[in-house]
């Protein structure tokens, strides 16, 4: 196999079986090249969150290996790798009682000493960067000292995005970032995310529930069902028939999901910038 441009995120034969016996991931292979906006679709319980969280080690796979930028994720280097892997959450996961400024700055915590963190004494460049990103996501200076919990959902997710970009991430994991937002704001937020990622040439792995948004924003769509990848290709290939089958309730998962994949072109071809 020719040495294609190295993939930024590489999951090799990842398995995850929860303590209760649920097989959330079943030998999943996935390579995401640098700079790609990869959307993961699939019905509830398909294992999307589990997959995303395996990338930064929030979920420890029961089998297989995770590589981020060519380095294998191990408990020993987990903290280091996490610095370059940002995460955006469905429920924003902000400290709601803290100010917007404190929330964004907290995204830079791995880069400051404990003493500085204790006094909230971040470096001037970090303060500037926080302001830069807050402006970039469309917030105003008067929001800086507002409590994060007082903002609307859309504004909170903007803060979440600003926080995620504080450490210049190489990979951004977004788990249903717009699940609780209205369609117009969802589009705005995903545009922001995509543009900000493109500026840094960051790789985005984003799970979504809205198929139209997936088709609009994804460079590539990965369809998951019952812990397996059953579709992997360019948005144009993800036609309505496939969409129907992905979300169909019929017991289709134990058929031949791989027949779905055989006609999809190579990942790199589909996911080029």
């Amino acid at each position: 196999m020719s040495q294609a441009p190295q993939s930024m995120v590489k999951l090799s034969a990842i398995n995850k079986t929860w303590a209760d016996g649920t097989r959330a991931l079943n030998s999943v292979d996935l390579e995401v090249p640098e700079g790609q906006f990869c959307v993961i679709l699939g019905p509830s319980g398909a294992g999307k969150s589990t997959l995303l969280r395996a990338v930064n080690g929030l979920v420890r796979p029961t089998g297989g290996a995770v590589h981020v930028d060519g380095v294998e994720l191990t408990p020993a280097n987990e903290r280091d790798i996490r610095k370059s892997v940002a995460m955006i959450h469905q429920h924003f996961n902000l400290a709601t009682r803290a100010s917007v400024a404190a929330n964004v700055l907290s995204g830079a915590l791995p880069d400051v000493s404990l003493a500085r963190a204790l006094c909230g004494w971040f470096y001037p460049q970090q303060r500037e960067k926080a302001c830069h990103y807050l402006e970039r996501v469309g917030l105003k200076p008067e929001h800086l000292h507002r409590r994060a919990g007082e903002l609307s959902g859309g504004q909170q997710q903007r803060v979440g995005i600003a926080r995620a970009f504080m450490l210049d991430p190489k990979v951004v994991l977004a788990d249903e970032p717009v699940a609780s937002l209205d369609p117009q704001i969802s589009r705005d937020i995903l545009t922001l995310l995509k543009d900000a990622a493109r500026e840094l040439n960051a790789t985005v792995v984003c799970s979504l529930h809205q198929v139209d948004l997936a088709r609009e924003f994804g460079d590539r769509i990965v369809g998951m069902r019952s812990g397996e990848i059953v579709f992997d290709g360019a948005p144009e290939e993800f036609d309505d028939q496939r969409l129907g089958r992905l979300y169909q309730n019929a017991d289709w998962g134990d058929g031949e999901p791989d027949t779905f994949r055989e006609d999809t072109p190579e990942l790199e071809a589909a996911g080029g910038m």
Binding site: N56, L58, E78, R79, D80, I81, R82, K83, V85, A86, M87, H89, H91, F92, N93, L94, A95, T96, S106, G107, L109, P110, G160, R163, L167, L173
Partner: peptide
Amino acid sequence: QPQEALEAIG
């Protein structure tokens, strides 16, 4: 939730 967000960036 907020704790997980900071844990996730190490």
